[in-house]
Design a protein around this nucleic acid. Structure first.
Lengths: 343, 343
DNA sequence: GTCGATTTTCAAAGCGCTTTGATCAACCCA
DNA sequence: TGGGTTGATCAAAGCGCTTTGAAAATCGAC
């Protein structure tokens, strides 16, 4: 059923039917009611391509996911973010267009989406320090919001981020307060902006308490179980091992726990662990009492909020881009305790 | 840059330019080359809405993700599947349209996508036993492929599935061969078809060896770390605890390991664990030697293959729907060993 | 009843593309 | 030299919608 058929059926012009359905005021209430009833009865839905062609709007938001043999951006965090953003889009009548591309083609993918008129805006994931994609999106000219920030980019752009620096500084202070001095940082890849900020927070907190950072206690890698396990294993085997670990996500934290327990040590007693927790729906950090002490910030909520910011900007592209900084909470679980020998 | 501008620029008609770019034969090679060069130089890309309107094809595939307060389908498996399917779509010039809807609206979401002409086909995720959505999609009339199967649905439909029954039967036999008799099944929600099949495989293997299944050793729940932990904890505390666990995914298996080690037991020595492993990119089951003995089948590959099947069907909708059954491999890791007392 | 103002409805153009049917030029063979 | 083919290009219609500008219907006041 298309607009012409519907309007023929009603004995009205397409104009009137279109206006009635789109809420324009110049339609007699009785007529509007009749039209709406007929539309509902016949399950009429405007063809989105035709409408898009006429209005110039795609009613869709683009998310470009680069896949690489090197790094995995297809991670669980992404799934929850998408779910959050998707809820917002659906409620607002927007679709979510996912473009999975080899990472070498990422820039092309953004350009193509714009040139084909496929989307009205973008969300940019996992920004790196001084991320060239932000400038690219600026050039392209469609509204966009960055999930995270990118130090070094001077452009005015919209973003939504967690205060990663603060979160990791607080986590580090928390461990120092428990008497820990040998605190390891198992970080994500520090080319990623959020990882660099976390490291800065960690270093600042150590420095503030007069603790000299030990390069041997800092690693930066993909956030997988195995990388957490490997890094922690190596550090625990070395002389003067850490008494506490700070990890970038729950999954590497699970690897760290494996390394700890494999050595007959007990997490929370012999070795403490604090992780960042993205509050993923299917990977809860325990229930009543969290397994891991963590800096927590819901990535799903971030998705919802970022989507709202983007839709707002699409609706009104004027003015400076909005930014929003979320605070992570520090939740105490069973993975931390006083440094050994300080009971 | 649109088609008219490009053809004006070249002094040709839109017809000729369109034909040249779409590979039709009735264009002089020299002209075609000139057109292609100009198109490339100006970054011309056909507006997908206009093209879709003219051709009647959306060049997009719909994935509907129901979100619920009850169950989490937004799971890590989904992310990897999407990544696999997305690669195929991109290579074929298709887009991936993700629709995140409250689960009560799922049927409406499919209908709306069709009515709005937004997609050329669907992939259906996580089918339940006798899943009504399959009939719905049949009614709707757009091609679709189910990731999984649905017992009880008589309709002829396309699907791609892992032989879950066989996989879990083999895993169970493997444990029996190691001397285990008290084998627990920590299953996914058995309303989901794949979970029901796994249970059937497990029960069949026990029965074949004359072992009476114990209802106290079978649970069925969301596949989270916590649910794995809880189920395993309860069973280990009870009288006559299991000596081996079979879990539905890596994440609950991690919960099971936590329960085991929390009791001072050692996984692989005191208690064995076999899990299904979807071979997720960011949640590898160890590296050289797997952490968990597992039935492994790449969900990302499944995504790629399912997408190929769907695109093939869109290209040629005639004939019976294709189906494909993948075999899971049984890989031996460090989480299994002889039943205690049989060393 | 009439006239101007206000509602309400309509016809038609246009969004950017594909595709049908026609035109025009070039070619071949009788 | 002319008519039938073939090859290359074009003008125009149409996809289903929104939106502009005009027309028709209704209304209020005299």
């Amino acid at each position: 059923m298309n607009l012409r058929q519907l309007s023929d059926l009603l004995g009205l012009s397409q104009t009137t039917v279109s206006r009635a359905l789109n809420g324009y005021p110049e339609v007699k209430p009785a007529t509007r009611a009749r039209i709406e009833a007929a539309a509902r009865a016949h399950g009429y839905r405007p063809n989105m391509r035709a409408r898009g062609l006429a209005t110039g709007r795609a009613m869709a938001i683009g998310h470009v996911i680069p896949v690489s043999t090197q790094h995995e951006i297809v991670n669980p965090i992404f799934a929850d973010f998408i779910a959050g953003a998707g809820e917002t889009y659906t409620a607002a009548g927007y679709d979510l267009l996912l473009s999975v591309v080899p990472d070498a083609d990422e820039a092309q993918a953004y350009r193509a989406l714009k040139a084909r008129g496929a989307v009205d805006g973008f969300i940019l994931h996992a920004p790196k320090t001084d991320d060239a994609r932000i400038r690219l999106l600026g050039d392209i000219g469609l509204p966009f919001v960055v999930h995270g920030r990118s130090s070094g980019v001077t452009l005015d752009y919209g973003w939504l981020d967690v205060d990663n620096r603060r979160a990791f500084a607080r986590a580090t202070e928390f461990l120092i307060d428990l008497g820990h001095r040998r605190i390891a940082l198992i970080n994500g890849r520090e080319a990623l902006d959020f990882a660099a900020r976390r490291r800065a927070g960690y270093l600042a907190a150590l420095a503030a308490r007069g603790i000299v950072a030990d390069p041997a206690l800092m690693t930066s890698d993909e956030m997988t179980e195995v990388s957490g396990y490997r890094a922690a294993s190596a550090m625990l085997e070395a002389g003067d091992p850490p008494t506490a670990f700070l990890t970038a996500a729950l999954i590497p934290a699970i690897g760290v726990r494996r390394a700890i327990e494999e050595r007959g040590l007990k997490m929370g007693r012999d070795v403490s662990v604090v992780t960042h927790d993205d509050d993923l729906s299917y990977l809860a950090n325990g229930d009543d009492v969290p397994i891991f002490t963590a800096t927590r910030s819901s990535v799903r909520l971030a998705g919802r909020l970022a989507a709202e910011m983007l839709l707002a900007r699409i609706a009104d592209p004027a003015g400076p881009a909005a930014t929003r900084l979320l605070e992570a909470e520090l939740i105490v679980g069973r993975s931390t305790g006083p440094a050994p020998g300080r009971g």
